[in-house]
Computed example of a mutant assay.
Amino acid sequence: MNRHRDHVPAGTAGIRECCAAVLAVACLIGLAACSSPGTTADEDTHGKPAGGAIAETTTDTSDDTDDSTAGPAANLSTAELETIAKRFTACLVGKGFDAKVTPSYALLPIGSTAETAPQTTVVVRRLGADGNPIILGPGVEISGDSDPLYPDIMYGIVSADEGAWVGFKNSKALAGSIYADKQADYAACEQENPDFAQPNYSANNASGGGASAAGSDADAQQALIDFARQARKDGFDWMADPAPGEATSVEIPSDVSYEELRRFYDTYSGDKWPSHDGIPFGTFCTGECTAYNRLLDER
């Protein structure tokens, strides 16, 4: 059985099934912590609407008592933080990392557009077990299950356009990963750039400073339920409520016709597409998904 997703937000992973391009909306899970069943290269997981990169935030279980997330960066402007992130990235590149700065979609205030996301998250290329960059394509899936190559990442991107990337919270998180032998180099860049800190997603996405990930998941699922109910009222009787625990994506039945699916996406284009905390949900389809895959190819 094939499961095709057009989002991620989540989890770390092994490589399994199939890939394509983003459909209409890609999903970045803007929650304090989250995970997903799987992300195929057919999809672009967690990111921005219509063809953007997909990103995933994952639960950070590391000890944060001595990291710099509450340090000098706390009072800097977005422009200053972006400059610092670029400088830190340049250091990593100089140490041999394939690294880049990517938008911090999960930090967007409610109602903001993806284009306004601050460029403050630093990611490195996701490598496979052979030490080479993962090439997305047919037969490749990054699943939401725990990946021993990446036991502690805080952020991930799976995009048909950009490829696969991961973000470590700090040098400590490289321990035990495929990047373990580069931990000292990463730490050296931290020492050279003491004003750099990865965005603190959990703090920025917890409403009132104390909302739990579970509560945010519940809110996200309720938004999906509300959307499903509205879709049925609008004549899309095939739209079912999300499965228990699903808080990241809209499920598209595999037997929906191409014409009906086009009408569905036309109806809910732009601002009409469901979102949570200002971040659009992704989509996925399980099974043959002929019409769904055809739209993936077209869009």
Score class of each variant (00 low, 15 high):
Ser68His: 15
Arg125Gly: 02
Thr57Gln: 09
Ile225Trp: 02
Thr78Gln: 13
Ser104Cys: 10
Gln183Trp: 08
Thr78Tyr: 02
Glu288Pro: 00
Gln230Thr: 15
Arg229Asp: 11
Ala228Phe: 07
Ile54Gln: 05
Thr45Arg: 09
Ser275Met: 08
Asn132Phe: 12
Arg16Asp: 12
Asp6Tyr: 01
Thr267Met: 07
Thr120Leu: 02
Glu298Ser: 12
Lys172Ser: 15
Glu43Met: 10
Ser159Leu: 13
Thr59Pro: 11
Lys95Gly: 07
Lys48Trp: 12
Gln119Trp: 06
Asp181Ala: 15
Ala197Asp: 05
Ala114Trp: 10
Ala70Phe: 14
Thr45Asn: 08
Ala41Phe: 13
Gly94Gln: 06
Leu81Cys: 11
Arg263Gln: 11
Ser257Lys: 07
Ile135Trp: 04
Ala220Thr: 08
Cys18Asn: 12
Ala160Ile: 08
Trp165Met: 06
Ser112Lys: 05
Tyr265Met: 09
Leu108Cys: 03
Leu23Phe: 12
Thr116Gly: 01
Ala187Val: 04
Gly208Ala: 06
Asn193Arg: 09
Arg126Glu: 15
Gly51Ser: 11
Ser275Cys: 03
Glu251Met: 06
Ser269Val: 11
Ala24Phe: 10
Asn205Trp: 00
Gly111Cys: 05
Leu149Met: 07
Gly210Glu: 09
Leu296Cys: 07
His276Lys: 01
Asp195Arg: 13
Tyr201His: 14
Arg16Lys: 11
Val25Thr: 05
Cys27Asp: 11
Asn170Lys: 01
Asn132Lys: 14
Asp237Ile: 07
Asp195Ala: 15
Ala106Lys: 04
Gly215Met: 03
Arg294Lys: 14
Lys182Pro: 01
Tyr179Met: 03
Cys27Tyr: 08
Ala220Leu: 07
Asn200Ser: 13
Pro244Cys: 04
Tyr186Phe: 15
Glu192Tyr: 00
Glu80Ile: 10
Pro151Val: 02
